[in-house]
Nucleic acid binder design. Structure first.
Length: 491
RNA sequence: CGGGGCGUGGCUCAGUCCGGUAGAGCGCUGCGUUCGGGACGCAGAGGUCCCCGGUUCAAAUCCGGGCGCCCCGACCA
């Protein structure tokens, strides 16, 4: 691992790429736009995933798996949905390769063309609703609360590790309900889970709200979202929950008989978060030394680095630490001992800072003499000498402190860069000069939204749940505001 | 798809203008000394200079053609 990363202030995009690759979260795959998630990055993803998965299960959802391949014709059944995804679909047209006539290469066998071409799922609404049609007859079959963890493919032109890759991992929930209210409750319940995981586990403060029609999911009645601010003050959509109404039920003709024996279309929701969240964690918390991971999702919460001049001295340190570290493990703390030989302690300090381990324990002869250990916080860099006996109590407390501190730091940063404005001139200069979020009134007109986007590149990230529209005017038109919204430049 | 740049050891790149033994730093391997903030010495390994063709006694270097990648603009979780 070469030294350091490009300074955040110097080149944010490069800083980000440096951190992701040097912390060994991910690497570029051989096909343009693809990404390898390396073991450290995948461990992080697994912890994020579990935080969501257990909450989905607590609220009655079950995991299932639907196919990667979808008949091309399915995509076209819902008009908005096609328009949204058709232009970025990978299409499978053949099923065989043969040796090239003039050498060693392989070419597509023209005789192997598929009768019906299939697409690689960009999202699974269509296959899932084709199946739900078979499974739903009566109100007794409802609700269906299914989630799947899967990969999807969207053929993007410009990609960035975790933030936008051709293939990515995500979770997509697809539910079917008897009433509009149930579907709406589900959509909101999931959004609340997203908010909770983002804030409590990933330590990322978010704005929750509604997407405008221009920004909503293709095929949804309406879309709720959580929006976060990255370290360069740009917005990142961190999760979306869609109320699909009866759009997909109509497109796939999915009906049920209600208690009054009437045939009705089913109400639907879908919702997702993706590996993009890993990018968000890096951008919200990272600094010029690398990642800073919130303890609740850090693969290694406490990294111990023994210091000594010989194998024997290292052995003594490991003996010294055995009991306290065992106690921590029994307490379900993820403890790692970096006892690699031939690498200096200083190198290890830097490496684990790059990887964002929340706490580091350094132990050498000096500590053993006074029956203590040196503990260093990644978020602040603060070093403290703690008694060996107190560790099993102190470490969990410190991890909590770091968790909260990261959240507070991120929240202060976001709030300092969120401006409540009333003048469009100020709006333009804020967006152009420092970036950041602008909280302001909007007249609800999509033409206004489009013009602002054209002039400033800022989009409405969300219509806030908590609204104060009394006396508020539209930032652009000056007409009475219909909504209070957050504008920002987005990823 | 439009504009710009680049392909040389695992990585970052020099060498190309002006043809003449393929280099540096980092990384890697071995041994020794080190070890509380990215250690040092010695010895080594590692190359289709993107590909194809041409010019030449001789091509990483010149000429022609191709391929690939990166950056900037129009779409996006």
């Amino acid at each position: 691992m070469s030294k350091g990363v490009t300074a955040k202030s110097k080149d944010y995009a490069r800083w980000y790429t440096d951190v992701i690759t040097k912390a060994q979260l991910a690497d570029y795959g051989p096909v343009k736009g693809t990404m390898v998630i390396r073991p450290y990055g995948f461990s992080l993803w697994e912890l994020v995933k579990d935080a969501f998965d257990c909450r989905f299960k607590e609220t009655g959802h079950l995991n299932a798996y639907f196919p990667l391949f979808i008949p091309k014709s399915f995509l076209s059944k819902e008009a908005e949905h096609v328009a949204g995804f058709a232009k970025e679909c990978a299409v499978v047209t053949h099923h065989r390769l043969i040796a090239d006539s003039d050498g060693e290469g392989l070419v597509v066998d023209p005789d192997s063309a598929l009768d019906e071409e299939v697409i690689v799922r960009p999202t699974s609404e269509t296959v899932i609703w084709a199946m739900y049609k078979k499974w739903i007859q009566s109100y007794r079959d409802l609700p269906i609360l299914i989630n799947q963890w899967a990969n999807v493919v969207r053929w993007e032109m410009r990609t960035r590790l975790f933030l936008r890759t051709t293939e990515f991992l995500w979770q997509e929930g697809h539910t079917a309900h008897a009433t509009a209210k149930e579907a709406e409750d589900e959509t909101r319940q999931i959004l609340e889970i997203y908010r909770e995981v983002a804030e409590d586990e990933l330590a990322i403060p978010v704005f929750s709200g509604l997407k405008t029609d221009a920004e909503k999911f293709a095929g949804a009645e309406h879309t709720y979202c959580i929006e976060a601010m990255m370290g360069d003050r740009r917005a990142l959509q961190a999760g979306t929950s869609h109320n699909l109404g009866q759009n997909f039920a109509r497109a796939f003709d999915v009906t049920f008989q209600n208690e009054e024996n009437q045939e009705q279309h089913v109400y639907a929701t879908s919702w997702g978060v993706s590996t993009r969240l890993i990018g968000a964690i890096a951008m919200v918390h990272g600094d010029d030394k690398g990642l800073r991971l919130p303890p609740r999702i850090a693969p290694k919460q406490v990294v111990t680095i023994p210091i000594g001049k010989s194998e024997e001295e290292i052995g003594n340190v490991l003996d010294y630490l055995e009991t306290p570290l065992q106690e921590l493990r029994e307490n379900r703390i993820r403890v790692h001992i970096d006892d690699r030989a031939g690498v200096t302690p200083g190198f290890k300090f830097n490496e684990w800072e790059m990887k964002g381990a929340p706490l580091r324990i350094e132990v050498g002869a000096r500590d053993m003499e006074v029956n203590s250990v040196m503990v260093v916080r990644r978020d602040t860099g603060e070093k403290m000498s703690l008694s060996k006996e107190g560790l099993s109590k102190e470490i969990p407390r410190l991890l909590e402190t770091v968790q909260l501190s990261l959240y507070e730091q991120a929240k202060s940063f976001r709030d300092e860069n969120t401006f409540s404005l009333e003048s469009y001139d100020e709006f333009k200069s804020i967006i152009a000069d420092t970036s950041g979020f602008v909280k302001c009134g909007w007249d609800g007109d999509s033409a206004t939204e489009a013009t602002i986007q054209k002039e400033t590149k800022a989009t409405i990230r969300c219509i806030l749940f908590e609204q104060k529209v009394d006396g508020l005017n539209c930032i652009f038109s000056g007409k009475p505001a219909k909504h209070e919204v957050i504008f920002g430049k987005s990823y």
